[in-house]
């Protein structure tokens, strides 16, 4: 680990615009700092600035940026109204990591691409312009949607996939003021600048995540992985579905580990609404979802896996 200056922020205003890398849970940042994939020269510890409460806001909920994953998953309000979020958080990492990892930190979690995490390898995300070693390499974990010639990495987390399905918003404080953006627009596609995972600008700090009012219906988080626990997803599906009289009246889907961001496709949601569940409908939804899907060899299987996992989730959500 490269040496750094360490300072503690006393309040949010210390952190906003600070010429330092912010650290809270540290579970991802320190992992990468040990590998010297991240080499900040200054760290600012923001664990003492509050932002660690979950509070009602209208019919929705405000989750402070520094609420730990464990606390969020265990929160009675979250469990009652947004069980999808609890379930997705609990699908990720381990209890120990969830006790440290925070809401904002988890949103900023970096990819698990082995070439990104290995300084010897070409990686446009880590060293812009150096190329992408995952193309033609071991890419079993990589993206099938929204990739570019520059990068095929995935966003590896679970929580954000649920937040995308729930259509949460991210509140951000910057040197120039605050802004609020849909979670679905927080993460970027790699395009020709994969070095940026998300739309945060230098000096900006995530302060909270806002959940809209609870959605009636079934909430399902399905994570397919090699181990039964403590493993990153091969594919995950977050679904909020409401059925009335045998017809789907509301559908909000999001997909994990198949793209550089939690993948949502409003066309798929729209297709499902107004229809009666059937195998043919699930196939049509998958066709639409995977229209532009592109395998890279090692991850070709994710295309049929996403199709089948979607079918499993839709079948479960629409079962009598």
């Amino acid at each position: 680990m490269k040496a750094f200056d360490y300072a503690r922020a006393a309040s949010l205003s210390d952190a906003v615009g600070a010429p330092a890398c912010l650290i809270a849970g540290g579970t991802n940042l320190l992992d990468l700092m040990k590998l010297e994939v991240e080499t900040p020269s200054a760290l600012m510890d923001i664990t003492r600035i509050g932002l660690n409460e979950i509070t009602a806001e209208g019919d929705g909920l405000r989750i402070g940026a520094l609420v730990t994953n464990a606390a969020c998953a265990a929160d009675p309000q979250v469990r009652q109204g947004w069980p999808l979020l609890s379930r997705a958080i609990l699908a990720g990492a381990s209890p120990q990591l969830r006790n440290k990892a925070t809401t904002a930190g988890n949103l900023c979690q970096r990819t698990r691409c082995s070439y990104f995490m290995d300084n010897r390898s070409a990686c446009n995300k880590r060293r812009p312009g150096s190329g992408c070693a995952a193309l033609g390499g071991i890419n079993r974990n990589h993206a099938i949607l929204g990739t570019s010639d520059a990068c095929i990495a995935t966003y590896p987390g679970d929580m954000a996939v649920a937040l995308a399905a729930l259509d949460a918003q991210v509140k951000i404080e910057g040197p120039g003021g605050s802004r609020r953006i849909p979670l679905r627009e927080f993460h970027r596609l790699p395009g020709d600048d994969p070095s940026r995972d998300n739309v945060l600008q230098p000096g900006e700090v995530i302060t909270s995540v806002l959940l809209p009012a609870p959605v009636e219906g079934r909430q399902i988080y399905r994570k397919v992985r090699d181990r039964a626990s403590y493993a990153f997803a091969l594919v995950s599906v977050a679904a909020v579905l409401r059925i009335e009289d045998g017809t789907i009246v509301q559908a909000q889907l999001a997909f994990g580990s198949i793209a550089h961001k939690p993948w949502t496709d409003p066309r798929v949601d729209t297709l499902l609404v107004g229809e009666r569940p059937s195998k043919a409908l699930f196939d049509k939804a998958a066709d639409l979802l995977l229209e532009g899907a592109q395998g890279q060899g090692g991850n070709d299987f994710k295309i049929p896996l996403a199709r089948r996992t979607l079918a499993a989730v839709l079948a479960e959500a629409t079962a009598e």
Binding site: Y6, T27, L97, N99
Partner: peptide, 15 residues
Amino acid sequence: GRRINSCLTLAVMHD
């Protein structure tokens, strides 16, 4: 009282 991985946290953060 909460379990964590002590490898992924800095001593200096535990004041």
